[in-house]
Write a protein that binds this DNA or RNA. Structure first.
Length: 469
RNA sequence: UCCUCGAUAGCUCAAUGGUAGAGCAUGCGGCUGUUAACCGCAGGGUUGUAGGUUCGAGUCCUACUCGGGGAGCCA
């Protein structure tokens, strides 16, 4: 075989998964030097080939024709090792590669910024192009990849149809936050209409367009054709949010189910979260063990607790009663009608329930227009899933399927009915009960890994005042 | 956007208003089984930026920039 790809080399993952079958065999491995230790006539290399979280220990001696060169290899140099796999006498690994030839593919510059020590997450963010080579980020991004796959698998197993909704949206009616404008108009010579305003009729799409803040409304259209659908894609919010839980660009999963009510919605959300926890524990045991040891010491306990317990349920009104009786001094007052503050949510999920908890039936005044009005005429069939540590990880609702009610709600809020014509059509033509929710993909990763800053679960994070790399 | 803390060597951090240091990393040397190896020596600085106070500023004051934590908004 020609070329230098991994096709003709054994993967470190393969070795770790079944090293017995390679013992005392000659093998070739290609990878990067994570760390190297030498003595006068021998040395050790910890080699990472990208396929596995753990490193392969390579032992080399002065029988190598380029021993002195190898002994001076810098961290992150790329090498090709040919040798024999043997059982290790060291305590920390069951096997090691006794090198017979080491080819040097690239000698890394000595000023390689990652050292054999712990680095702060803040520093690593400044070298986001190199940080995937660290243990932590190697673990985070392999888990992220597995979770993305698991989400598809979860929904596909249940015959949900994956819908790719548009990233550029022409409707300004999604109401989920500030939007990023998409335009080809000149900023120095902006076309104006008779009123002196920007003339978007001359823009690329002939109208004002933005990056999507949610695929939900589009997903509802496909829901009414395929019954159960989900979206999984990037989402953009131009909010000036400076927190560890917000990014300007993030990924969201939005299932939407026809003939479903709020209870079905919560049921699938709980089932999904448990499925995903189970999946990563099963398929990324080394990575999860690393998180449990170095990122959040009680991670396994917490996740096991989630797997083994029923999620809590309470209505917004019940939550208000609990908070009023709470033996805690809150900074924000508790009044029926105002939204729950972070401190309230944390109290509920971390102190009262100590597990994920659904809060349902919020006052209509603090929720979106499309949520289904309850019979009390005061609350809507909304649900937020609060989890310890991260806060709100899921927000969803049963949608208002009754044309008259939706019409009335749009009028009440002073929205322009014209903008919702197609959305109202969905009710006109066979509209059924339906429900769905949005899951923040990064918040999910944070919850399952114990990483506390969203910037550390996105490859190249985009946040306020920061779009490097 | 608000509150709060911070910015000193490549990294992590010290330094009563009075000569800017250490550990790690890097370079060189030593070491026959290491595990963030170990031991010795060396190089490495416009103390975030711009002003100000002072005989003298890393240190005090003002503004700005960037970053951490918290809040709002949300996923």
């Amino acid at each position: 075989m020609t070329g230098g790809n991994s096709m003709d080399a054994i993967s470190v993952r393969g070795l770790f998964r079944q090293y017995q079958s390679y013992l005392n065999q000659p093998i070739t491995v290609k990878g990067w030097i994570r760390t190297l230790r030498t003595s006068k006539t021998f040395g050790f290399i910890e080699l990472n080939d990208g396929t596995f979280f753990m490193n392969l220990q390579v032992v080399f001696g002065d029988n190598l024709n380029n021993f002195s060169e190898v002994a001076k290899l810098t961290l992150s140099s790329a090498i090709c090792v040919h040798g024999r796999l043997v059982e290790s006498t060291g305590a920390k690994q069951p096997f090691e590669l006794q090198a017979e030839r080491i080819g040097i593919e690239n000698l890394a510059s000595a000023d390689y910024p990652l050292q054999k020590k712990k680095h702060s997450f803040e520093f690593l963010r400044t070298i986001a192009h190199l940080r995937p080579r660290t243990n932590t980020f190697s673990a985070v991004f392999r888990v992220r990849s597995l979770l993305a796959f698991a989400i598809h698998q979860f929904f596909q197993e249940r015959n949900f149809v994956y819908v790719q909704t548009p990233i550029i949206t022409g409707s300004d009616c999604e109401g989920a936050g500030e939007m990023f404008r998409v335009t080809t108009l000149s900023f120095t010579d902006t076309p104006r209409n008779a009123q002196g305003q920007t003339d978007f009729s001359q823009d690329f799409f002939g109208k004002e367009t933005n990056l999507t803040v949610s695929g939900q409304l589009n997903a509802e259209a496909y829901c009414m054709a395929f019954r159960n659908v989900y979206t999984f894609g990037p989402t953009f919010r131009a909010e000036n949010s400076n927190t560890a839980r917000h990014a300007a660009e993030f990924w969201m999963i939005e299932p939407e189910m026809a003939f479903a009510e709020l209870a079905d919605n919560m049921h699938i959300a709980e089932e999904m979260l448990k499925y995903l926890i189970h999946y990563v524990l099963e398929n990324a045991p080394e990575e999860m063990a690393f998180f449990n040891s170095f990122i959040e010491p009680s991670l396994f306990q917490r996740l096991t607790n989630v797997l083994n317990s029923e999620f809590g349920h309470l209505t917004y009104t019940e939550a208000i009663e609990i908070l009023k009786k709470a033996d805690v001094q809150f900074n924000y007052s508790i009044d029926w009608g105002s939204d729950l503050q972070t401190e309230h949510e944390r109290y509920l999920t971390e102190k009262v329930f100590q597990k994920p908890v659904f809060v349902t039936d919020y006052p209509k005044g603090i929720k979106a227009f499309y949520m289904r009005l309850n019979d009390d005429d005061k609350t809507v069939a909304a649900m937020d899933l609060l989890v310890p540590g991260v806060g709100e990880i899921i927000g969803g609702s049963q949608r208002e399927e009754r044309l008259g009610y939706l019409d009335k709600r749009i009028a009440e809020l002073g929205l322009d009915r014209k903008d919702y014509e197609w959305y109202l059509d969905l009710r006109k033509y066979g509209g059924t009960k339906h429900a769905g929710f949005g899951l923040g993909f990064e918040r999910l990763i944070m919850y399952l890994t114990g990483i506390t800053n969203i910037r550390d679960v996105i490859s190249f994070p985009r946040t306020v005042k920061s779009a490097d790399f």
